[in-house]
Nucleic acid binder design. Structure first.
Length: 577
DNA sequence: CGGACAAGCTGA
DNA sequence: CAGCTTGTCCGG
């Protein structure tokens, strides 16, 4: 048998003989252990009945560990290796394998009766169209019931449903089970999924879940960046399942209130009529701050004051990104400053670094010697105080660490975008400084800003349910504000697409980033061998950008380069550019 | 990946 | 030339 060792540094297969006793129990996809040189390592069986290379004496497989990815997923891993220019398929096969050894599969649930038709008034009428033919983008308002989409897919047979969060996956599993659909939650119920007869629900990694009789694929909130792996290889669950569905010839639906331009490029758009879509976005008030001089009270528009005084439950979002976060000492309360120049210091890694002069020192308070230093959310804390003064009520500052009990104890909340995850219900979400989002130095800034509005919509509800969003901005005519006002994400898509085309950014081209020690040698070899339509730019901050007309050309060119020794960072479709 | 072994540098 | 580091190759 031919096996691939479970070691990222070995991009090579080896042949072994199967011990007599295991014949029939081991095949393509089995997890095994092998003697490789002086040690034993895990491996996947990738081929059977092979002709071993001449002149090598085969050792027997050392151990049979259990079930692993099917032949279909091993093939898909090879494709992903090409698509994200990975050195080996190993990271994908790991994701496709169970967390613990699985040696037997549970009984397959009997399919009782076909699930009833989906009655949801927004989703229902669109499902048949969305689930027919090749990949589709199903643009639904943010308040649409996503469980209805999952249920529609499950009515075709065993579906694979990819969610942006584990929370949503669990919630959906409960909803579908209640509707009589057998469900396996990935990765906990890997064996149940592998046995078949279930709809499989999970997050990004579930793109690699076993679904032997796959009948349909759904990606929920396709625009959400969590669907992409941040570490190299930077694979995207959407692209993996679109390819998986294509190979199986099954329907594939990508839902989103504001689909990415990438998805719209290869998928057919299905959407609700204008009135239905608009009704599913919250009523939006744009507070124009153009006339307001910059300063602390720039964060409180008359519209915000009205809302706070109205008695409504209000969530204020203030993004810290790009702003100097201060460190405070938990021991003595002092602001931690630079020894040399007394400017505030930051802690980007394991040391304190001065923002002004770059001096570094260990993480310790110079006044009292404490090592317990906390980030002070200056902006949020100040707004909390001012809002308490304004309302005469207690205001809760919400961070990722705020305990759930406290989160529900007040009427007014202030926090970074974490509040949008932590507070479940409110009447109004107010973005105190939307311009932080609109003008952030990221090429997806506009999409991400509208993404926050969509997330707020899930908390406050659509305009029919009284949901309200307040956007404080100095750019009231910005397409994100227009899109939110009209409940029409197309406003952002059109402008953004033109901008990307002009700047030569995805999805109009395929992009990769090359860096680290071996980057220069790699790029030199690439320029030598790649066709002329592949352009290399840089280096900027030690990294090169590789642009090609499409992924076929880009990935073929990257795969053709012999990798020089030394550390190499290679990210196809990098998240931050 | 991790061990083996070879080729280069240092010190007496 | 031993003793150590650095690099390249190989495993079935």
């Amino acid at each position: 048998m031919r096996v691939l060792p479970d070691q990222t540094g070995i991009a090579k297969t080896f042949d072994y003989v199967v011990p007599e006793a295991w014949v029939g129990r081991v095949g393509v996809g089995s997890r095994v252990r092998i003697a490789l040189g002086p040690r034993r390592v895990g491996a996947w069986v990738t081929e059977v009945d092979v002709d071993p290379p001449a002149g090598v004496t085969l050792k027997p497989l050392a151990k049979l560990s259990g079930h692993g990815p099917s032949a279909e997923l091993i093939e898909l891993a090879r494709w992903a290796q090409w698509r994200w220019a990975a050195k080996t398929p190993v990271p994908f096969l790991r994701t496709a394998s169970p967390e613990r050894n699985v040696d037997g599969l549970p009984a397959r649930p009997a399919r009782t009766h076909p699930a009833a038709a989906v009655a949801d008034p927004v989703v229902g009428p669109l499902l048949a169209d969305a689930l027919s033919g090749g990949p589709t983008v199903l643009r639904l308002p943010p308040t649409a019931d996503l469980a209805a989409v999952a249920q529609g897919a499950a009515s075709l047979g065993d579906a694979l449903v990819i969610c942006p969060s584990h929370r949503m996956a669990r919630h959906l599993a409960v909803r579908l089970r209640r509707a009589g659909v057998p469900v396996a939650l990935h990765p906990d119920e890997w064996a149940r999924a592998a046995a078949g007869g279930c709809t499989v629900i999970g997050t990004r990694a579930a793109a690699w879940a076993p679904v032997p009789d796959l009948a349909a694929v759904v990606v929920l909130d396709e625009h959400d960046e969590v669907h992409q792996e941040e570490r190299s290889p930077t694979w995207h669950a959407r692209d993996v399942v679109v390819e998986r569905a294509r190979r199986r010839g099954v329907p594939c639906v990508l839902t989103s209130p504001m689909p990415t331009l990438e998805a719209l490029r290869f998928a057919r758009l299905v959407r609700a009529d204008r009135a239905t879509e608009r009704a599913g976005w919250p009523a939006t008030v744009v507070a124009d701050r153009t006339e307001e001089p910059p300063g602390r009270n720039a964060l409180f528009s008359p519209q915000l004051v009205d809302v706070v005084r109205s008695g409504a439950r209000v969530l204020c979002v203030l993004n810290q990104k790009g702003r100097a976060a201060l460190l405070g000492c938990a021991g003595c309360g002092e602001i931690v400053r630079c020894d040399a120049c007394h400017a505030a210091v930051a802690k980007p890694g394991d040391e304190l670094v001065c923002r002004r002069c770059g001096t570094t020192r260990p993480v310790i308070c110079a006044t009292c010697g404490s090592i317990d230093l906390k980030v002070i959310r200056m902006g949020v804390n100040r707004v909390v105080e001012d809002l308490e003064a304004l309302s005469g009520e207690r205001v809760v500052a919400v961070t990722a660490e705020t305990p759930a009990a406290e989160v529900d104890s007040a009427r007014l909340y202030v926090g970074t975008e974490a509040v949008l995850h932590q507070v479940g219900r409110a009447d109004v979400v107010a973005f105190l400084d939307l311009d932080q989002e609109l003008f952030a130095p990221r090429y997806r800034a506009a999409e991400q800003a509208l993404g926050l509005v969509a997330r707020a919509a899930r908390i406050v509800g659509g305009r029919g349910e009284g949901g309200r969003v307040l956007l404080q901005t100095r750019a009231p005519e910005h397409e994100v504000c227009r899109a939110a006002l009209l409940g029409d994400p197309e406003r952002v898509a059109v402008v953004e697409d033109e901008r990307r085309e002009m700047l030569g950014f995805p999805p109009h081209i395929a992009l990769a980033e090359v860096g680290d020690q071996a980057g220069e040698a790699f790029v030199a070899a690439l320029v030598e061998s790649a066709p002329p339509e592949v352009q290399v730019q840089g280096p900027v901050d030690g990294a090169w950008r590789v642009k090609a007309p499409d992924h076929q050309v880009l990935c073929d060119s990257l795969a053709a380069v012999h990798r020089p020794s030394g550390r190499l960072r290679l990210s196809v479709d990098p998240l931050r550019v």
